[in-house]
Amino acid sequence: MTLRRYVLRRILLIVPVLVGVSMLTFALVSLTPGDPVSRMVAQNPSVTAAEEAQLRAQYGLDGPVWQQYLTWLGNVATGDFGVVYGTDRPVSAVVGRRLPETVALGVFGWLFAVGIAIPTGIYAAVRKGSVGDTVSRVFALSGVSIPNFWLGLVFVLVFVLWAGWWDVRPPREPLTHPETLWHLVLPGVTIGTATCASIMRVLRTSMAEELNEEYVTAARAKGLPERQIVWKHALRNALSAVVTVVATLTAGIVAGAVVVEVVFSWPGLGRELVEAIHGHEINLVVAITLLTAVTVVVCNLLADIIYAVLDPRIRYD
């Protein structure tokens, strides 16, 4: 099968995957106790059971779950993702407002992770056993072990309260404004640290293996410069393993945004998802979950394509 046909097939497969994800999410959210009306009623002692039922009927939450799902699916097919029950705001507008914030945070975290992990991983593999290698291993181990909410709070304490280099709140400027980009550093580093550590560990291991391969010995015997051996030959092969984890870890960045956005008051989709789950806003929860699913599927697809570019021997069935 050619790469083009493979990609086409994978794109077509996205549809049933998303239907499955939406069905599962819808079922899971529906299985959890409560709905937007029960939350409303909890704040209002004077609502009777009959009035609660009346409100539920008003919001269309009184039918069976399958019926609610089919209605939702029918609406989505026409591009209508429904409204947020508490505010009547269109879900697509809410997601659209938050998406750029989370994308910016994710891209920053991802660039930080890759930008630090690749040179450090290579350095650690090439200088195996050196002080630098030991330091990078300690960093990698710490990065994987430290929960990002804790790291975020430490950053706030050190860089915001003690050093005064950043504000706690994000600036009220557009995303492209230098002040906003500067503010992205702390949450971006927080969200990217675990990913960075994971990539570093994988790259160090795979790079070290590549450097022990016979073709590297042969290249050295031919008198090729070490820089060329490392960067042109060994790294290209070592990257295949890294690409796999990068695709998986990108999904981790999306998940990590949930916590990091709360700690840094970053108004992205992660924070919105937390609020939506608490408020039983099923339309919003399903929409954000679907978006996350699309991100994961696309990342995996991109990983497959990059595989082919990195190693033309790979064939897809």
């Binding site: 009777t48 059971a49 009959a50 009035e51 039922a53 009346q54 539920r56 009927a57 009184d62």
Partner: peptide, 8 residues
């Protein structure tokens, strides 16, 4: 009329 849950 009301239904089983008291909805008018």
């Amino acid at each position: 009329p009301t239904d089983d849950e008291g909805v008018l």
